[in-house]
Simulated assay, not measured.
Amino acid sequence: MWDIMLIFFIQIVFVPILTLRTVFMVKNQKERASFVGALEALVYIFGVSLVLSGEQSIGAMVAYSLGFGIGIYLGGIIENKLAIGYTAYNVNLQSKNEALIEKLRMEGYGVTLYAGEGRDSERYKLEILTKRSREPKLEVLIEEYEPKAFIISYEPRKFKGGFLVKAMKRRLNLKRQKKEKVTEV
């Protein structure tokens, strides 16, 4: 019985690690993916050796499968909490909502405004790039100022230049300067 419980818990640990490794690879974070991948392999080999050692019990196989399923669920929760990466939003508006645009910019979102021709009238599109961790706040702001907005979001794989990249570089330089001051002391 102890082996069956251990197999179950190993799977609950293994699959979220597998999820994170996959996310890091997709986000082009090779160093993190390599580290997590080595940990994943260690846990996997330990779990499989337990399943394959001794007698092949149905309980061990069921525990392995259930742990895998629960691990997928937990991996999704962990990935959502970490919110690694960025999301691009295209927000389509029926009117040029200056209050929304100003509020978004005051909150630190980079906003680009486009005017376009819709079927019945002129339309406006906001293009916004944000960290995934800031998505919920962005969505609340849009809903508050423009409840009828049509929103499309996607995860960009690469980007270069622009407002957000300049802000990220400034933050990175400030962190480096703080580290240098700490090491000087």
Rank of each mutant, 00 (worst) to 15 (best):
N97R: 03
V91N: 01
G85E: 07
A149T: 06
P147R: 07
G67D: 01
E155S: 15
G161T: 07
S133I: 15
L93G: 06
K137I: 11
Y114R: 15
N90Q: 14
R134M: 10
E135F: 11
L164G: 09
A83D: 01
L141T: 03
L74S: 05
I84C: 07
G116C: 10
I128G: 04
L74N: 07
R157Y: 15
A83K: 04
R132K: 15
K160V: 15
V91S: 01
P136D: 09
F163A: 13
T112R: 00
G110P: 05
R134Q: 14
V111T: 04
K166F: 02
G108L: 05
I70T: 02
V165L: 11
F68G: 08
D120P: 02
E117P: 02
Y73I: 04
R134Y: 13
Q94V: 07
R123D: 15
Q94Y: 07
T130H: 03
N97A: 04
Y124G: 11
Y109T: 04
A99H: 08
L129A: 05
L141C: 12
L126P: 08
F150M: 00
K125I: 13
G75R: 01
S153W: 05
G116L: 10
E98V: 06
Y73C: 01
A88P: 00
I84Q: 12
L129I: 13
I128W: 03
N90T: 10
Y145E: 02
G161A: 05
E135G: 08
F159A: 14
P156A: 09
K158A: 12
Y154E: 13
I101C: 00
A167V: 12
Y86R: 04
L74Q: 02
G110L: 02
S65F: 02
L164F: 14
G75V: 00
I72M: 09
E143W: 01
F159I: 11
A83C: 05
G67E: 03
R123W: 06
